[in-house]
Amino acid sequence: MTERSQPRVRRIAINTGGGDAPGLNAVIRAATLSALNEGWEVLGIRRGYMGLLEGEVDGEAGVFPLTAQAVRGITHLGGTILGTTTRGNPFGLEVRQPDGTWGTVDRSGEIIQKFREQEIDALIAIGGDGSLNIAHALYQKGLPVIGVPKTIDNDLSATDVTFGFQTAVEVATDAIGRLHSTAEAHQRVMIVQLMGRHTGWIALESGLAGGADVILIPEIPYDVNRIAEKVRERDAQRRRFSIIVVAEGAVSVEGESYADATGRYRGVADQLGDQIAAATGKETRTLVLGHIQRGGEPIAYDRNLALRFGAAAVRCIREGSLGTMVALQGNRIRAVPLGDAVHDIKRVAPDSELVMTARQLGVSFGD
């Protein structure tokens, strides 16, 4: 992207939005220390943009200085010292109407004004597709923004990998591995539900590494009858247990998914368990791994990737490359236009090498 000239940078801000991911604190630390070494002041905004809009969050200042002391010893910590929210879109914040009902209001103009009042020269926005879409929209309204990709789902197409993904895969793989002994001891079918509303990257990589017999992902619709065939086939081979890994957003060939009225995915493992038990007569148990996939300490890979992203974001500000997102492409960090970065979701290709490898090893995708 062509570099833009800009006034001398004196003060930047950092925020985190959307769901948390292992490695957020490493980004914050790297960006803060890199900016301080440039001679800039660094501010942290609590809970996305809410700290800026409300002035105070949970009794603490909504915007506060990020000093070297404030980010000391946080690289290995999960979560985010800035806090986060999935309900902080300034273009459509929920508000209670005079009649008691809920509506939305656009407060994005206030964001721009408050940045100007506080003389903030640039924002490093750390988030997934939703948060980065917000950042891109704010950039289009005049806010100088650099995006840092964050999602354990690994579904941003402009970057090869997002930090937090490998940690989620490690957690899920460990859980799947631990189920083998109990499943075999009781000759049960064990169904593990993992995160992945729109893509199956976590389910695919952890299922393959964990030795799953069936992997169900949103990109490949499944037929319960084919899954039951796989379970019966294993029984005939005297392997009287089966491990099924399913992404929460997996859909059947009939188009059935398990999103509720709020858009959250619930119950796919339980529903599938009932169907498999009815089709095979096998005792079936389910495990929803849930938010444990995004909690706890990031593994070394994610820490280092997050540190690289944070330092690269500061370089982008220094060079005037605004309205971009830092991305890992090959073995280098590059700046890509935010609009391109959030344009497409990176999905698992049904004919990808990972899928082909799993099929060659006898894994069923229920198709």
Rank of each mutant, 00 (worst) to 15 (best):
P22R: 15
R318G: 11
V42G: 00
G177C: 07
L272A: 08
L287P: 06
I191L: 05
N331S: 11
A137D: 10
E248Q: 11
L338N: 00
A311Q: 12
L66S: 01
G330A: 05
E110D: 13
D20A: 11
G296V: 08
L216T: 09
A311E: 13
C316M: 08
A209I: 15
R234D: 10
D99A: 13
R46T: 13
E353N: 05
G127M: 09
G196K: 05
G55R: 03
I317G: 02
L204T: 15
I12W: 00
N37H: 13
D260M: 09
G73N: 14
W40G: 00
V105N: 11
A278Y: 14
R303I: 03
V245R: 09
G23F: 14
G366A: 07
R303Y: 12
G273F: 05
P149Q: 13
P98H: 12
A35C: 10
A261V: 08
T286K: 07
G164L: 14
A312Y: 05
G103V: 09
I276H: 12
G211V: 11
I12E: 00
G127P: 13
A250D: 08
Q329P: 03
I28P: 00
D260Y: 08
R10C: 08
S252W: 05
A61N: 13
T104N: 04
F365I: 04
A13R: 01
Q193C: 11
L143R: 00
G310L: 06
H343E: 05
D367Q: 14
